[in-house]
């Protein structure tokens, strides 16, 4: 990693007690919860399909993906729509949306050893922010969650 400090902007959100972020350039938009069409027989992480101004977007449940329990409160999750290179888009359902945070690459560290379970695989690393740890999601792996599911099922 370069010695020069590189600034990045992360769109942050929380899922359960995890504080997560993805690079703002990867985020298409953040929208409130939408009614969605359930896809029967789909893996449980696929919550449904939403119509985003004519674009059909697959909504993925980040809680279930990270192996977290279902939300206990009645609050509806928020859609963080992530752009996909292949003209597709997926929405990550998160508990609450946070601020856009400026981070310094110097503060970037590998995945903390305390992080275990499915989350470990889906996180690129962490930024030490004053008072808390911001985990950076690996959006590519998150979108290929179906492959993981298949591999797990066949294993």
């Amino acid at each position: 990693m370069s010695e020069l400090s590189q600034l990045a902007q992360l769109c942050t959100f929380t899922v359960d007690d995890l504080y997560l972020g993805v690079d703002v350039t990867e985020v298409q938009e953040v929208i409130r919860y939408q009614a969605m069409t359930v896809v029967p027989l789909a893996p449980p992480v696929v919550r449904g399909l939403i119509n985003l101004r004519g674009q059909i977007v697959t909504a993925l449940d980040l809680r279930s993906m990270l192996g977290l329990p279902e939300a206990s409160s009645d609050e509806l999750p928020v859609n963080v729509v992530i752009r996909d290179g292949a003209d597709e888009a997926v929405s990550l359902l998160v508990d609450q949306i946070g601020d856009v945070v400026d981070v310094d690459e110097i503060a970037f560290e590998d995945v903390p050893p305390t992080l275990t379970g499915p989350a470990r695989e889906l996180v690129l690393g962490a930024y030490k922010l004053p008072g808390r740890l911001l985990l950076v999601l690996d959006t590519r792996k998150v979108q290929d969650v179906h492959l993981r599911g298949l591999a797990a099922a066949s294993a």
Binding site: P40, L41, V46, I50, I56, T58, V90, V145
Partner: peptide, 27 residues
């Protein structure tokens, strides 16, 4: 007819998705 995203492409029983007249997504 719109193709299914890769997360659900392998799900059996569906050939694609579409948006119906009422604006909802239908498989």
């Amino acid at each position: 007819v719109r193709p299914l995203s890769r997360q659900i492409k392998h799900v059996e029983g569906f050939a694609g998705a579409t948006i119906t007249g009422d604006g909802r997504v239908a498989l």
